[in-house]
Design a protein around this nucleic acid. Sequence first.
DNA 1: AACAAGACCTGCATGC
DNA 2: TGCATGCAGGTCTTGT
Length: 280
Amino acid sequence: MPELPEVQTVLNGLSPAMSGSVIEAVMVGNQKLRAAPPPDFISHVKGQRIVNLSRRGKYLVFILENGKAIIHHLGMSGSFRISDTGGSAKLHDHLSYTLNTGKKIIYNDPRRFGMVYLTEGDGLNEHKAFINMGPDPFSDDFTPDYLYEALAKRQGPVKTVLLNQALIAGLGNIYVCEALYLAGIHPEKKAGKVTRKQATSLYKAILQVLESAIKSGGSSLRDHKGVDGTMGYFQHAFNVYGKKGQACGMCECDVSKTGGVKLIRQAGRSTFFCGQKQRI
DNA sequence: AACAAGACCTGCATGC
DNA sequence: TGCATGCAGGTCTTGT
């Protein structure tokens, strides 16, 4: 489910409810997540005030008063909701935080690909979730030059390389497809063959697509929802993703001749692109 | 080292 | 209607 814009949307929804609040109770379900909370999770978290919430790539980070940090990844199907303490439990609720404000923050994840960590002695930066993570697209470290250099070293198709979180943190399948479309770059082009000029276009396209998705509250494919249950609506702005055989977002060509948006499979993932606008 | 493929799960859409 | 199949926003592990 969630790529950077969706995680940012979740963060924006959770922050007002959680920031400064004290965690009075924690529920950890029996079913195992991909990375389940450690056994001592509750004892380190209970009674702690949440002093800061942030996002790193696709991870959410809650900093506690005792200096430890809770790290959440939503996997493919994870979502948070805010409810009253009297709210009823739902299938696939795996974790919840009851706050001193009377609100309950509930993590639900049908596919259980989500991950929950608690930092140990080492700082956040040394945590395994972040130790090899590339720059966030919105950080100062992410520049056209950085992108060009990162791609230049790689032989694989640019589409696949852009999904590597060690190069850029936060991009996922949807927004890579959309960014390559905006930049006019064919997904099968070798990363190392992307020119400096193309890298600059791609840099701009990445920021543009992420920024507009965040403004729209993320995309709501299937079950992704904001913390209040509202749906994002960025999917209405997709140019190519999920549009196999249809006209791309800015198409002036005859779909009956071109066949419209193409769907191929790269490294096991679906890639949508426009054969007219995106060139090798 | 870098890359591709498989594994991990459930739910949903599709086709018979 | 029921059943089988394939696919889904991600990442980690395994094998080449």
